[in-house]
Amino acid sequence: MSVWERSSTARVVPPARPRKLAKVPFVELADGRLQGVVSSGSDIGRVYVSSVAAGSYAFACSTNNNRPCGGARGSFCNHIGALVDQAVLQYGPERVARYLKVDVPQEERDAERLRRAMTATRPSPDAAKAAAAVFSRFLRHLAYLELAPATTPLPEMHFFPPTRAVA
C-alpha cells in the first residue's frame, strides 16, 4: 500500500500550466459545469461565483452575497472570461473543451477560442442556485489548506471507504 493510500489526503493532479491564484482562487469542473470563485477587480472584499454549463453554455455570475453581476447580461462577463482562462491553465484546453462539449478543432483550442465558440449563451437560473454550494466548497478548500499534513484520518472525510490490498 502506498503512502498516499494510508493518509487522509488524496493525490492531486498537477496543473497543465502554473497559474496565479489571486484573480481566480478556485476553479473546478463539477456538476456538469465549469464553476469557480473569481476575485472582484474593484473591491478586495468581494468575490464572484461564476459558472458555465456543459453543452448549453448557460452561465451565471453573482457575488458571494447572491447579488447578480452587472456585466453578465446576455453574454459572458469578465469574471466568466477569467474563469475560462484559468480553467484552461489548470486543466488544459483539451480537457475543458471536452468537459464543456465545445466543438473547436484540437489545433485551435485555447481559452479565447473556447470562449468565442460558446457565444450562443444565456443566463442560467439553475446555475445561480448552485452558487452557494460552489462558494461553500471554496471555503472548505481554504480550510483544508490551513491543515498541517498528517496521516491521521479527518473525521469529516469518514465517508470514504478504507482502501485495503486484497490478497
Rank of each mutant, 00 (worst) to 15 (best):
A60T: 08
P15Q: 06
G32W: 12
K101Y: 09
L29P: 04
F76G: 06
V84R: 01
G74F: 08
R140G: 15
P105Y: 02
L21R: 15
N66E: 02
F59Y: 15
E156F: 14
D85G: 01
F26V: 07
G71F: 15
R73A: 12
G74E: 06
R116W: 05
L34R: 02
A117S: 06
W4K: 07
V134M: 03
V49E: 09
L21T: 15
G32L: 14
T152L: 02
L34W: 05
G70N: 13
S7C: 01
P105F: 15
R140F: 09
K129M: 15
P125E: 12
V96P: 04
E28I: 10
A132P: 09
C61K: 06
K20Q: 13
S124I: 14
P14Y: 01
E28A: 14
H158M: 09
V49T: 03
T9F: 02
A87G: 11
D103Q: 13
V27G: 02
P153K: 00
L139Q: 10
D126G: 11
T152H: 10
P155K: 01
P149D: 07
G41I: 08
A143C: 15
T9C: 00
R115K: 07
V134Q: 03
R17Y: 10
A22R: 13
Y91I: 01
A30C: 14
A22H: 02
A128Q: 14
R109H: 12
F59S: 12
